[in-house]
């Protein structure tokens, strides 16, 4: 199953300047929670600190979209992914 991960702002810098990762998952069952676990494992501590709070929950300020839809209005971190899905991480930015 192929998933495209895109990210903005501080997250983009962790993914590299293109801000995009193409992931080939060996498992057929993948949801946002397991995708984040995979990304934390591969991208390291900085990604974890950016996306998860001290309780290991996704920070409320980070928007996660699956094919343009906010997972808050899907099934949260339990939102299931399917082949070809595009997952986008949008952290807040503050500059003026």
């Amino acid at each position: 199953m192929k998933i495209t991960v895109k990210a903005f702002a501080t997250f983009r810098e962790i993914l590299g300047q293109t801000g995009q990762l193409n992931i080939e998952s060996p498992t057929r069952e993948l949801d946002i929670k397991t995708l984040i676990e995979y990304l934390v494992e591969h991208l390291g501590v900085r990604f974890r600190e950016e996306i998860l709070d001290e309780n290991g929950m996704v920070k409320k300020n980070v928007k996660i979209l699956v094919n343009g839809r906010d997972i808050d209005f899907l099934n949260g971190v339990s939102t299931k992914l399917k082949d070809g899905d595009i997952v986008v991480f949008v952290p807040p930015v503050a500059g003026g």
């Binding site: 903005f8 702002a9 501080t10 983009r12 920070k59 409320k60 300020n61 807040p92 930015v93 503050a94 500059g95 003026g96």
Partner: peptide
């Protein structure tokens, strides 16, 4: 409006009608 690096954000908030900034960013 807000910016970072080569990026920006924009949202028009009409009180009573649309989400506000705290709906978007709770903390």
């Amino acid at each position: 409006g807000a910016v970072y690096s080569f990026e920006g954000r924009l949202m028009t908030i009409i009180p009573g009608e649309t989400p506000c900034l705290r709906c978007l960013i709770p903390e």
